[in-house]
Design a protein around this nucleic acid. Structure first.
Length: 420
DNA sequence: TCTGGGGTCCTAGGACCC
DNA sequence: TCTGGGGTCCTAGGACCC
Protein backbone atom coordinates (compact mmCIF):
# COMPACT_ATOMS: atom_id res chain seq x y z
CA UNK A 1 0.00 0.00 0.00
CA UNK A 2 1.73 3.15 -1.07
CA UNK A 3 1.12 6.58 -2.49
CA UNK A 4 3.64 9.04 -3.83
CA UNK A 5 3.58 12.80 -3.74
CA UNK A 6 5.53 14.54 -6.48
CA UNK A 7 6.28 18.13 -5.55
CA UNK A 8 7.99 20.62 -7.85
CA UNK A 9 10.89 22.40 -6.18
CA UNK A 10 10.34 26.19 -5.89
CA UNK A 11 8.08 25.77 -8.88
CA UNK A 12 7.68 29.31 -10.26
CA UNK A 13 11.32 30.12 -9.63
CA UNK A 14 12.37 26.89 -11.37
CA UNK A 15 10.19 27.69 -14.41
CA UNK A 16 11.94 31.05 -14.78
CA UNK A 17 15.37 29.43 -14.49
CA UNK A 18 14.71 26.85 -17.19
CA UNK A 19 14.75 29.54 -19.86
CA UNK A 20 17.50 31.59 -18.24
CA UNK A 21 20.48 29.26 -17.82
CA UNK A 22 22.56 32.34 -17.06
CA UNK A 23 20.71 32.53 -13.72
CA UNK A 24 21.76 29.06 -12.60
CA UNK A 25 22.84 29.10 -8.93
CA UNK A 26 21.71 32.73 -8.58
CA UNK A 27 19.04 33.96 -6.16
CA UNK A 28 15.69 34.40 -7.92
CA UNK A 29 12.27 35.39 -6.60
CA UNK A 30 8.84 35.63 -8.22
CA UNK A 31 6.33 38.26 -7.08
CA UNK A 32 2.54 38.20 -6.79
CA UNK A 33 0.30 40.42 -8.87
CA UNK A 34 1.09 44.10 -8.43
CA UNK A 35 4.61 42.98 -7.52
CA UNK A 36 3.22 42.95 -3.99
CA UNK A 37 4.57 39.87 -2.19
CA UNK A 38 7.26 37.27 -2.75
CA UNK A 39 5.47 34.06 -3.73
CA UNK A 40 8.40 31.86 -4.83
CA UNK A 41 12.10 31.76 -4.02
CA UNK A 42 14.94 29.71 -5.46
CA UNK A 43 17.06 27.98 -2.84
CA UNK A 44 19.71 30.69 -3.21
CA UNK A 45 17.06 33.31 -2.39
CA UNK A 46 15.90 31.28 0.63
CA UNK A 47 19.53 31.25 1.76
CA UNK A 48 19.41 35.06 1.69
CA UNK A 49 16.57 34.81 4.22
CA UNK A 50 13.80 35.97 1.92
CA UNK A 51 10.63 34.72 3.58
CA UNK A 52 7.59 33.29 1.82
CA UNK A 53 4.87 35.90 1.37
CA UNK A 54 6.88 38.87 2.60
CA UNK A 55 5.98 42.25 1.12
CA UNK A 56 8.44 42.95 -1.68
CA UNK A 57 9.07 46.56 -0.68
CA UNK A 58 10.41 45.39 2.68
CA UNK A 59 13.15 43.16 1.30
CA UNK A 60 13.75 44.70 -2.11
CA UNK A 61 16.77 46.90 -1.42
CA UNK A 62 18.81 44.39 0.57
CA UNK A 63 17.95 41.57 -1.82
CA UNK A 64 18.95 43.43 -4.97
CA UNK A 65 22.14 44.62 -3.30
CA UNK A 66 23.02 40.96 -2.79
CA UNK A 67 22.75 40.35 -6.53
CA UNK A 68 19.25 38.84 -6.42
CA UNK A 69 17.10 38.52 -9.54
CA UNK A 70 13.36 39.18 -9.61
CA UNK A 71 10.39 38.41 -11.87
CA UNK A 72 6.73 39.42 -11.88
CA UNK A 73 4.46 36.38 -12.04
CA UNK A 74 3.93 34.80 -15.47
CA UNK A 75 1.07 32.36 -15.05
CA UNK A 76 0.87 31.55 -18.75
CA UNK A 77 4.36 30.06 -18.43
CA UNK A 78 3.78 28.27 -15.11
CA UNK A 79 0.47 26.79 -16.22
CA UNK A 80 1.99 25.39 -19.37
CA UNK A 81 5.04 23.95 -17.59
CA UNK A 82 2.74 22.38 -15.00
CA UNK A 83 0.71 20.69 -17.73
CA UNK A 84 3.93 19.24 -19.16
CA UNK A 85 5.02 17.83 -15.81
CA UNK A 86 1.59 16.28 -15.19
CA UNK A 87 1.61 14.78 -18.66
CA UNK A 88 4.94 13.07 -17.99
CA UNK A 89 3.60 11.68 -14.70
CA UNK A 90 0.54 10.32 -16.44
CA UNK A 91 2.70 8.38 -18.88
CA UNK A 92 4.69 6.62 -16.13
CA UNK A 93 2.29 6.14 -13.21
CA UNK A 94 -0.88 4.05 -13.11
CA UNK A 95 -3.09 6.71 -11.56
CA UNK A 96 -2.45 10.42 -11.06
CA UNK A 97 -4.32 13.08 -9.10
CA UNK A 98 -3.26 16.59 -10.05
CA UNK A 99 -3.51 18.26 -6.68
CA UNK A 100 -2.25 21.75 -7.46
CA UNK A 101 -0.19 23.59 -10.04
CA UNK A 102 3.00 22.07 -8.62
CA UNK A 103 1.95 18.84 -6.90
CA UNK A 104 0.48 15.47 -7.87
CA UNK A 105 -0.35 12.30 -5.98
CA UNK A 106 0.43 8.96 -7.64
CA UNK A 107 -1.37 5.75 -6.69
CA UNK A 108 1.31 3.06 -6.44
CA UNK A 109 -0.95 0.29 -5.07
CA UNK A 110 -1.27 -1.27 -8.45
CA UNK A 111 2.45 -1.51 -9.11
CA UNK A 112 4.00 -4.93 -8.87
CA UNK A 113 4.61 -5.99 -5.26
CA UNK A 114 8.27 -6.63 -5.95
CA UNK A 115 8.77 -3.20 -7.43
CA UNK A 116 11.37 -1.18 -5.55
CA UNK A 117 9.36 1.96 -4.81
CA UNK A 118 12.36 3.99 -3.77
CA UNK A 119 13.98 3.34 -7.15
CA UNK A 120 10.70 4.17 -8.84
CA UNK A 121 10.73 7.52 -7.05
CA UNK A 122 14.24 8.22 -8.32
CA UNK A 123 13.15 7.31 -11.83
CA UNK A 124 10.19 9.72 -11.65
CA UNK A 125 12.49 12.49 -10.54
CA UNK A 126 15.03 11.95 -13.30
CA UNK A 127 12.53 11.54 -16.13
CA UNK A 128 10.57 14.69 -15.18
CA UNK A 129 13.81 16.65 -15.04
CA UNK A 130 14.98 15.29 -18.38
CA UNK A 131 11.71 15.86 -20.25
CA UNK A 132 10.61 19.18 -18.77
CA UNK A 133 13.60 20.70 -16.94
CA UNK A 134 11.61 20.94 -13.70
CA UNK A 135 13.29 19.59 -10.53
CA UNK A 136 10.92 17.60 -8.29
CA UNK A 137 10.95 15.88 -4.91
CA UNK A 138 9.18 12.60 -4.28
CA UNK A 139 7.68 11.38 -0.99
CA UNK A 140 6.40 7.79 -0.75
CA UNK A 141 4.25 6.55 2.15
CA UNK A 142 1.01 4.70 2.95
CA UNK A 143 -1.24 7.80 3.18
CA UNK A 144 -1.42 11.25 1.64
CA UNK A 145 -0.67 13.00 4.92
CA UNK A 146 2.41 10.80 5.39
CA UNK A 147 3.66 11.53 1.87
CA UNK A 148 3.61 15.20 2.90
CA UNK A 149 5.70 14.29 5.94
CA UNK A 150 8.10 12.44 3.63
CA UNK A 151 8.47 15.53 1.43
CA UNK A 152 9.17 17.60 4.53
CA UNK A 153 11.98 15.18 5.36
CA UNK A 154 13.46 15.63 1.88
CA UNK A 155 13.51 19.39 2.41
CA UNK A 156 14.62 19.44 6.00
CA UNK A 157 17.33 16.80 5.79
CA UNK A 158 18.36 17.99 2.33
CA UNK A 159 18.20 14.45 0.99
CA UNK A 160 20.54 14.33 -1.99
CA UNK A 161 18.42 12.00 -4.13
CA UNK A 162 15.31 14.13 -3.53
CA UNK A 163 13.33 10.99 -2.64
CA UNK A 164 12.17 9.71 0.77
CA UNK A 165 10.20 6.53 1.30
CA UNK A 166 8.54 5.79 4.62
CA UNK A 167 8.34 2.04 4.22
CA UNK A 168 7.63 0.73 7.73
CA UNK A 169 6.59 1.74 11.24
CA UNK A 170 10.15 2.53 12.26
CA UNK A 171 10.62 4.91 9.29
CA UNK A 172 7.30 6.58 10.00
CA UNK A 173 7.88 7.02 13.73
CA UNK A 174 11.29 8.53 13.15
CA UNK A 175 10.04 10.95 10.51
CA UNK A 176 7.09 12.00 12.68
CA UNK A 177 9.36 12.71 15.62
CA UNK A 178 11.43 15.06 13.44
CA UNK A 179 8.39 16.96 12.14
CA UNK A 180 6.94 19.91 14.12
CA UNK A 181 3.18 19.56 14.39
CA UNK A 182 2.72 22.90 12.61
CA UNK A 183 4.24 21.36 9.47
CA UNK A 184 1.59 18.65 9.28
CA UNK A 185 -0.81 18.93 6.35
CA UNK A 186 -4.09 20.31 7.72
CA UNK A 187 -2.56 22.02 10.74
CA UNK A 188 -2.54 25.75 10.11
CA UNK A 189 -1.53 28.65 12.31
CA UNK A 190 -4.57 28.60 14.59
CA UNK A 191 -4.62 24.87 15.19
CA UNK A 192 -0.87 24.90 15.78
CA UNK A 193 -1.32 27.40 18.61
CA UNK A 194 -4.02 25.29 20.25
CA UNK A 195 -2.02 22.09 19.89
CA UNK A 196 1.10 23.68 21.37
CA UNK A 197 -0.96 24.73 24.39
CA UNK A 198 -2.14 21.16 24.78
CA UNK A 199 1.49 20.01 24.81
CA UNK A 200 1.34 18.48 21.33
CA UNK A 201 4.61 19.61 19.79
CA UNK A 202 5.68 17.09 17.16
CA UNK A 203 3.76 15.17 14.52
CA UNK A 204 4.49 12.06 16.57
CA UNK A 205 2.72 13.60 19.60
CA UNK A 206 -0.32 14.18 17.41
CA UNK A 207 -0.22 10.68 15.95
CA UNK A 208 -0.20 9.23 19.46
CA UNK A 209 -3.41 11.03 20.45
CA UNK A 210 -6.61 9.05 20.38
CA UNK A 211 -8.62 9.94 17.27
CA UNK A 212 -11.87 9.99 19.26
CA UNK A 213 -10.39 12.40 21.76
CA UNK A 214 -9.13 14.70 18.98
CA UNK A 215 -12.52 14.66 17.32
CA UNK A 216 -14.17 15.68 20.56
CA UNK A 217 -11.62 18.37 21.44
CA UNK A 218 -11.00 19.72 17.94
CA UNK A 219 -12.79 18.53 14.82
CA UNK A 220 -13.54 15.69 12.51
CA UNK A 221 -11.00 17.14 10.10
CA UNK A 222 -8.15 16.85 12.58
CA UNK A 223 -9.33 13.37 13.52
CA UNK A 224 -8.77 12.31 9.93
CA UNK A 225 -5.31 13.83 10.07
CA UNK A 226 -4.48 11.77 13.16
CA UNK A 227 -5.68 8.58 11.51
CA UNK A 228 -3.69 9.36 8.36
CA UNK A 229 -0.55 9.92 10.45
CA UNK A 230 -1.12 6.50 11.97
CA UNK A 231 -1.17 4.96 8.52
CA UNK A 232 -4.93 4.63 8.16
CA UNK A 233 -5.98 5.91 4.76
CA UNK A 234 -8.84 8.42 5.00
CA UNK A 235 -8.13 10.49 1.88
CA UNK A 236 -8.15 8.67 -1.42
CA UNK A 237 -6.69 9.49 -4.77
CA UNK A 238 -9.28 11.54 -6.62
CA UNK A 239 -9.14 10.72 -10.29
CA UNK A 240 -12.08 12.75 -11.46
CA UNK A 241 -11.70 16.47 -11.38
CA UNK A 242 -14.54 17.70 -9.19
CA UNK A 243 -16.77 20.36 -10.71
CA UNK A 244 -16.09 23.79 -9.30
CA UNK A 245 -18.61 25.20 -6.83
CA UNK A 246 -17.61 28.81 -7.15
CA UNK A 247 -15.47 31.00 -9.39
CA UNK A 248 -13.68 34.07 -8.11
CA UNK A 249 -11.94 36.79 -10.06
CA UNK A 250 -10.39 39.50 -7.94
CA UNK A 251 -7.39 41.81 -7.92
CA UNK A 252 -5.64 44.27 -5.69
CA UNK A 253 -5.07 47.58 -7.38
CA UNK A 254 -1.67 49.12 -8.01
CA UNK A 255 -3.25 52.54 -7.62
CA UNK A 256 -6.24 53.11 -5.38
CA UNK A 257 -9.62 53.56 -7.04
CA UNK A 258 -12.09 55.95 -5.48
CA UNK A 259 -14.87 56.73 -7.92
CA UNK A 260 -17.57 54.49 -9.29
CA UNK A 261 -17.00 55.52 -12.89
CA UNK A 262 -13.50 54.04 -12.70
CA UNK A 263 -14.45 51.02 -10.61
CA UNK A 264 -17.42 49.93 -12.72
CA UNK A 265 -15.44 49.14 -15.91
CA UNK A 266 -12.85 47.18 -13.88
CA UNK A 267 -15.66 45.16 -12.30
CA UNK A 268 -16.96 44.46 -15.80
CA UNK A 269 -13.57 43.03 -16.73
CA UNK A 270 -13.74 40.68 -13.72
CA UNK A 271 -17.26 39.60 -14.67
CA UNK A 272 -16.23 38.91 -18.26
CA UNK A 273 -13.27 36.79 -17.15
CA UNK A 274 -15.37 34.92 -14.57
CA UNK A 275 -18.10 34.07 -17.07
CA UNK A 276 -15.50 32.80 -19.56
CA UNK A 277 -14.32 30.40 -16.87
CA UNK A 278 -17.92 29.48 -16.08
CA UNK A 279 -18.61 28.51 -19.69
CA UNK A 280 -15.35 26.55 -19.87
CA UNK A 281 -16.62 24.59 -16.88
CA UNK A 282 -19.87 23.98 -18.80
CA UNK A 283 -21.86 25.40 -15.90
CA UNK A 284 -24.41 28.10 -15.23
CA UNK A 285 -24.72 30.16 -12.07
CA UNK A 286 -27.70 31.49 -10.17
CA UNK A 287 -25.87 34.12 -8.18
CA UNK A 288 -23.24 36.78 -8.70
CA UNK A 289 -21.60 38.52 -5.75
CA UNK A 290 -19.31 41.51 -5.76
CA UNK A 291 -17.03 42.86 -3.09
CA UNK A 292 -14.89 45.96 -2.55
CA UNK A 293 -12.50 46.83 0.21
CA UNK A 294 -10.06 49.50 1.25
CA UNK A 295 -6.55 48.57 2.35
CA UNK A 296 -6.50 46.79 5.74
CA UNK A 297 -2.88 47.92 6.14
CA UNK A 298 -3.64 51.60 6.05
CA UNK A 299 -4.96 52.48 9.49
CA UNK A 300 -4.89 56.23 9.10
CA UNK A 301 -7.60 56.27 6.44
CA UNK A 302 -11.27 55.36 6.86
CA UNK A 303 -11.96 51.72 6.11
CA UNK A 304 -14.86 50.16 4.30
CA UNK A 305 -15.69 46.65 3.14
CA UNK A 306 -18.75 45.72 1.20
CA UNK A 307 -20.15 42.44 -0.08
CA UNK A 308 -23.44 41.98 -1.90
CA UNK A 309 -25.13 39.39 -4.07
CA UNK A 310 -27.66 39.33 -6.87
CA UNK A 311 -29.78 36.27 -7.60
CA UNK A 312 -30.93 35.37 -11.08
CA UNK A 313 -34.44 34.07 -11.69
CA UNK A 314 -32.91 31.18 -13.64
CA UNK A 315 -29.35 29.83 -14.05
CA UNK A 316 -27.31 31.68 -16.65
CA UNK A 317 -23.86 31.85 -18.16
CA UNK A 318 -24.62 34.76 -20.46
CA UNK A 319 -22.13 37.54 -19.81
CA UNK A 320 -24.80 40.20 -20.38
CA UNK A 321 -27.03 38.85 -17.60
CA UNK A 322 -24.15 38.65 -15.18
CA UNK A 323 -22.85 42.13 -16.01
CA UNK A 324 -26.33 43.41 -15.26
CA UNK A 325 -26.58 41.56 -11.92
CA UNK A 326 -23.12 42.65 -10.81
CA UNK A 327 -23.90 46.27 -11.57
CA UNK A 328 -27.03 46.16 -9.42
CA UNK A 329 -25.17 44.40 -6.59
CA UNK A 330 -22.34 46.92 -6.61
CA UNK A 331 -24.43 50.06 -6.18
CA UNK A 332 -25.48 49.66 -2.53
CA UNK A 333 -22.00 48.68 -1.31
CA UNK A 334 -20.03 51.35 -3.11
CA UNK A 335 -19.42 54.42 -0.96
CA UNK A 336 -17.83 57.59 -2.21
CA UNK A 337 -14.80 59.10 -0.50
CA UNK A 338 -13.03 55.82 0.15
CA UNK A 339 -9.86 54.65 -1.58
CA UNK A 340 -10.48 51.09 -2.68
CA UNK A 341 -7.51 48.72 -2.75
CA UNK A 342 -9.17 45.54 -3.94
CA UNK A 343 -12.35 44.33 -5.57
CA UNK A 344 -13.71 41.14 -7.02
CA UNK A 345 -16.53 39.07 -8.41
CA UNK A 346 -17.76 35.68 -7.21
CA UNK A 347 -20.07 33.36 -9.14
CA UNK A 348 -21.89 30.61 -7.22
CA UNK A 349 -24.95 28.31 -7.02
CA UNK A 350 -23.96 26.35 -10.09
CA UNK A 351 -25.95 23.97 -12.20
CA UNK A 352 -24.88 22.09 -15.27
CA UNK A 353 -25.27 23.83 -18.63
CA UNK A 354 -27.45 21.05 -20.02
CA UNK A 355 -30.09 21.33 -17.32
CA UNK A 356 -32.78 23.84 -18.11
CA UNK A 357 -35.24 24.98 -15.49
CA UNK A 358 -37.29 27.67 -17.18
CA UNK A 359 -38.69 30.43 -15.05
CA UNK A 360 -42.38 30.28 -14.35
CA UNK A 361 -42.69 33.90 -15.37
CA UNK A 362 -40.46 33.85 -18.40
CA UNK A 363 -42.11 35.20 -21.51
CA UNK A 364 -42.43 32.19 -23.77
CA UNK A 365 -41.67 34.40 -26.77
CA UNK A 366 -38.17 35.32 -25.58
CA UNK A 367 -35.41 33.37 -27.28
CA UNK A 368 -34.69 30.21 -25.29
CA UNK A 369 -30.99 30.06 -25.77
CA UNK A 370 -28.47 32.77 -26.49
CA UNK A 371 -25.49 30.50 -26.03
CA UNK A 372 -24.38 30.74 -29.66
CA UNK A 373 -23.52 34.39 -29.24
CA UNK A 374 -21.36 33.59 -26.21
CA UNK A 375 -19.78 30.68 -28.07
CA UNK A 376 -18.82 32.93 -30.97
CA UNK A 377 -17.37 35.55 -28.67
CA UNK A 378 -15.40 32.91 -26.75
CA UNK A 379 -14.06 31.50 -30.00
CA UNK A 380 -12.97 34.90 -31.28
CA UNK A 381 -11.37 35.82 -27.97
CA UNK A 382 -9.46 32.56 -27.52
CA UNK A 383 -5.98 33.88 -28.22
CA UNK A 384 -6.46 37.59 -27.96
CA UNK A 385 -9.44 39.67 -26.92
CA UNK A 386 -11.12 41.00 -30.04
CA UNK A 387 -14.60 41.67 -28.74
CA UNK A 388 -15.31 43.66 -25.61
CA UNK A 389 -18.55 44.45 -23.84
CA UNK A 390 -19.38 48.13 -23.79
CA UNK A 391 -19.03 48.49 -20.02
CA UNK A 392 -15.49 47.10 -19.92
CA UNK A 393 -12.26 48.97 -19.39
CA UNK A 394 -10.46 48.12 -22.61
CA UNK A 395 -7.19 49.88 -21.89
CA UNK A 396 -6.32 48.11 -18.65
CA UNK A 397 -7.59 44.92 -17.05
CA UNK A 398 -7.20 46.44 -13.62
CA UNK A 399 -4.85 49.15 -12.38
CA UNK A 400 -1.99 46.75 -11.74
CA UNK A 401 1.76 47.00 -11.62
CA UNK A 402 3.60 44.19 -13.32
CA UNK A 403 6.98 45.48 -14.29
CA UNK A 404 9.26 42.46 -14.60
CA UNK A 405 7.44 39.72 -16.51
CA UNK A 406 9.42 37.13 -18.45
CA UNK A 407 8.32 36.20 -22.00
CA UNK A 408 5.61 33.58 -22.62
CA UNK A 409 8.35 31.22 -23.83
CA UNK A 410 6.12 28.21 -24.39
CA UNK A 411 2.71 29.62 -25.28
CA UNK A 412 3.30 32.45 -27.76
CA UNK A 413 5.00 32.23 -31.13
CA UNK A 414 6.15 35.80 -30.75
CA UNK A 415 7.95 35.15 -27.49
CA UNK A 416 9.58 31.81 -28.23
CA UNK A 417 13.21 31.66 -27.05
CA UNK A 418 15.85 32.34 -29.71
CA UNK A 419 19.05 30.33 -30.00
CA UNK A 420 21.91 32.30 -31.50
C1' DT B 1 4.29 54.74 -1.43
C1' DC B 2 4.38 49.57 -1.64
C1' DT B 3 1.17 43.63 1.76
C1' DG B 4 -1.65 37.82 -3.99
C1' DG B 5 -5.40 35.08 -5.88
C1' DG B 6 -8.38 31.18 -5.99
C1' DG B 7 -10.26 27.53 -3.94
C1' DT B 8 -12.50 23.66 -0.33
C1' DC B 9 -14.69 21.81 3.77
C1' DC B 10 -16.92 22.04 8.27
C1' DT B 11 -19.82 23.98 11.88
C1' DA B 12 -23.09 26.67 14.37
C1' DG B 13 -27.20 28.87 14.41
C1' DG B 14 -31.49 30.55 12.51
C1' DA B 15 -35.66 29.72 9.79
C1' DC B 16 -38.87 26.69 8.86
C1' DC B 17 -41.58 22.29 8.76
C1' DC B 18 -44.66 18.71 10.78
C1' DT C 1 -50.39 25.78 36.15
C1' DC C 2 -48.81 23.59 32.09
C1' DT C 3 -46.00 25.59 26.20
C1' DG C 4 -42.40 19.31 22.35
C1' DG C 5 -39.27 17.12 19.73
C1' DG C 6 -37.13 16.02 15.75
C1' DG C 7 -35.82 17.09 11.48
C1' DT C 8 -34.01 19.74 7.02
C1' DC C 9 -32.11 23.51 4.61
C1' DC C 10 -29.51 27.59 4.15
C1' DT C 11 -25.97 30.92 5.24
C1' DA C 12 -22.07 33.17 7.34
C1' DG C 13 -17.82 32.63 9.07
C1' DG C 14 -13.67 30.16 10.35
C1' DA C 15 -9.89 27.36 9.14
C1' DC C 16 -7.18 25.35 5.95
C1' DC C 17 -4.70 24.55 1.36
C1' DC C 18 -1.40 25.92 -2.61
Amino acid sequence: MALALVDCESFYASCEKIFRPDLKNKPLVVLSNNDGCVIARSKEAKALDIGMGVPWFKVKDAYLKNGGHVFSSNFALYGDMSARVMHVLETIAPSVEVYSIDEAFLDLDRLDKNFDLYKFGCYVKSIVKQWTGVPVRVGIAPTKTLTKVAIYQVKKLNVATGVVRLANTADITKALSLTPVGEVWGVGRRLNQHLQKAGIITALDLAQCSPEHIRQKFSIVLERTVRELRGERCLDIEKDIAAKKQIIVSRSFGQRVDDLSRLQPIMSNFVVRATEKLRQEKQKCSQVSVFVRTSPFNDSKPQHRGFNSFQFPHPTNDTRDILHGAKIALKPIFRANYSYAKAGVLLSLFSHEGIQQPSLFQDSNTPKDNSYLMQYIDAMNTYETQIYFASQNTSQYSPMRQSMVSPKYTTSWYEIPLVN
